[in-house]
């Protein structure tokens, strides 16, 4: 491996890590607060991508501008899903929760296929052809924008959780929901908001990924496994952890592709995943286990 490849792999890894982090931030919220393994998370991302696609195609909107619409829309979508589907099974055994999110996954993917057809769609914008070059390292401007948004989102959520009352309530529910209820927190409301935020994050990740990738009804599954890895790596419910975890997995896949092969790169990811689960199940930055 020469330096040119090294720096390129480094840059690509970090930039892709930004996307992984963005998808994982929403998932870590849901997994951390509600303790639900949400297999339908990737479908929220897919629907977010479709929303951006249609807004761009029909109304000629800038893909990044569509965030103003996708974020609130999917926040409410998440609240509804939580209120009517997730809430009734919060106390059910884990297998029922998994079954429900799997059912939702199948339903949403096929709904999208029914509505939008099975074909691949992608958008072309003014940014698409803007490539930045530093030395021998190349990257698309759209990747950089996505990366910056990932950091902004994560930091904003982090501050929100640390500083605001609502954020503190969410954290309290994440750590000890029964205790939170005792001190007068409306746990049900907090759950709805947390799920809404999680869904909105997934959709925002979709909007930001749209200028780089493509959308079809089954793209959600592509991201969801990696997102689980990142969440566990960073610690469930830990936003900064998700961000750093995203970078680590991004780099691992990037260097895995260079050193082993692109087909084997996920092997690196899953091996890290298993090792983290075994050795540090609270994640790299976790302190205690729930």
């Amino acid at each position: 491996m020469n330096w040119e490849i090294f720096f390129q792999a480094l840059t690509s890894g970090i930039l892709t890590g930004g996307l992984f982090a963005l998808v994982a931030v929403g998932l870590t919220m849901i997994l951390g607060v509600l303790k639900i393994i949400n297999f339908a998370h990737g479908e929220f991302l897919m629907l977010g991508m479709y929303m951006t696609y249609w807004l761009c195609t029909l109304f000629n909107m800038d893909p990044y501008l569509t965030l103003i619409i996708t974020i609130p829309a999917f926040f409410f979508f998440g609240v509804i899903i939580q209120r009517w589907l997730i809430n009734p099974i919060l106390d059910a055994p884990m297998e029922i929760q998994i079954l429900l999110t799997l059912g939702l996954f199948i339903f949403l993917a096929n709904l999208a296929q029914l509505l939008f057809g099975p074909h691949v769609r992608s958008i072309e914008t003014a940014y698409t052809f803007k490539i930045l070059t530093i030395g021998s390292v190349n990257f698309a401007s759209t990747r950089l924008i996505m990366f910056i948004f990932a950091i902004i989102f994560t930091t904003a959520l982090y501050i929100f959780l640390k500083k605001t009352d609502l954020g503190k309530a969410i954290r309290a529910c994440s750590e000890e929901s029964y205790g939170a209820m005792l001190v007068g927190i409306n746990v049900k409301r907090v759950y709805m908001i947390a799920f809404g935020i999680g869904t909105a994050c997934a959709a925002a990740a979709g909007s930001l990924a749209m200028p780089i990738y493509y959308v079809n009804p089954h793209i959600g599954a592509t991201f969801v496994m990696t997102a689980f890895v990142v969440v566990v790596l960073g610690g469930m419910g830990n936003f900064m952890g998700a961000l750093v975890g995203g970078f680590i997995i991004g780099l691992a896949e990037s260097f895995g592709a260079v050193i082993l092969s692109a087909s084997l790169k996920q092997l690196v990811t899953f091996t890290i995943f298993v090792l983290i689960l075994l050795l540090r199940p609270t994640g790299l930055f976790g302190t205690k286990r729930s």
Partner: peptide, 20 residues
């Protein structure tokens, strides 16, 4: 010879390696 999974989200490291 480079093989990848079609669900890959980033192939730039592979392409860079191929470029060299």
């Amino acid at each position: 010879k480079f093989m990848y999974n079609k669900a890959a989200t980033d192939l730039s490291p592979t392409i860079t390696k191929m470029k060299s």
